[in-house]
Structure formats: structure tokens, C-alpha cells
Amino acid sequence: MNEPDVERAVVKTYVPAYQKDAWIEHADRLDMSQSEFVRTMVQAGRRDFAVDGFPEAADDTAAADREGTASSDAPEDDADDARGEFEDRVYALLREETRSWDDLLEAVTDDVEGRLEDALQSLQASNKVVYSGRNGGYEAVEE
């Protein structure tokens, strides 16, 4: 039987200072070290991704393929699909362990925070959005 390699290795990444500050604050609230926080968040994201097994852009088609149905453009069908996927996610979280309302809320909203962060980073990289310290938030860049 193969034993997992438990030797530790260093991983480096570079993030904007405001993001690191947010991670430090969040880690402090959870009484975690920065390393423990980042490791936990990465693993949580990998677990969520592994459940779906498909990139975000392919979610609708992939879900329809898994269910053996064709995806529909009807808004009510999209809402039903999203509700079903959300229920599946909540159920998967509860199968892992008993969770309080607050724990569940944090688990499902972390994904929203991650998606928002990814979107803002992408928009900043394409010079469509900038962070303005003077104005205290993100701004669209005029074309």
C-alpha cells in the first residue's frame, strides 16, 4: 500500500496587497495561520471543483449531459437548474459533517467571494477595471 508523501514543500504566489490583507483578516477571524488558511481554502476549492469535474463555463451543458437532458434557454429552467445545483452543493456539505447555519452560509458564500475576486482580477488584467484608493473602490475604465 502506498503511503502519501507528507513531507512539506514551499509554495509561493503573488497577490495584490489588499488581497493578502483580506486573507490575513479572514485567517485571524478563523484563528488560523496564513499558511493554514490558504491551504484550507485551496483544498476547499479543489474539493468543490472535483465534485463538478467541469470548468465553470461548461456547467450548464455538463449538467445537462450528466442528467441525460438537453439544456434549455428558458429562464425558469435555468432557475430550476441553479436551485437544484445549489441544493446538491448544500447536501454534499452536510454529508461531510454536521454544520450550523453560519457554517453553511460561510461555505456557500466563499464561492461567491472567489468568483467575484476572479472576475475583478480578470477585469483588472484586461484594463477594464481599476481599484481607486482615492474613491475607496473599484471603477470601470472608460474606453
Rank of each mutant, 00 (worst) to 15 (best):
R46N: 04
T61D: 04
S100A: 06
V51C: 00
A44W: 03
G45F: 01
R83F: 15
D60K: 03
G68C: 02
R95Y: 12
D48I: 03
D78S: 11
G53K: 06
D78F: 15
R66P: 00
A82L: 14
R47M: 03
F54D: 01
E87P: 08
V42K: 00
L94S: 01
Y91K: 06
A50I: 04
A92N: 10
R99K: 12
R95G: 07
A74Q: 11
A50R: 07
G84Q: 14
A82C: 11
P55C: 00
A92G: 09
R47L: 08
A50N: 08
T69D: 04
E96A: 05
F86E: 01
G68W: 12
A79S: 12
D80G: 05
R66I: 03
G53F: 14
E85Q: 09
E97W: 15
V51H: 05
V90Y: 01
A63G: 01
S71T: 10
V51R: 13
F54M: 01
S100M: 14
D81Y: 14
A74M: 06
P55D: 00
D48K: 02
F49Q: 05
E76H: 13
E56P: 07
A44F: 13
P75R: 03
G53W: 14
D52W: 14
E56A: 06
R95V: 13
D65F: 09
A50E: 10
A64F: 07
E85Y: 02
G84D: 13
R95T: 08
R95K: 10
R47Y: 08
S100I: 09
A58G: 02
V51G: 01
P55L: 01
G68K: 00
L94H: 05
A57V: 05
E96P: 01
L93C: 01
A63D: 08
E97K: 15
D88C: 02
R95F: 12
R66H: 05
D65I: 02
A74P: 03
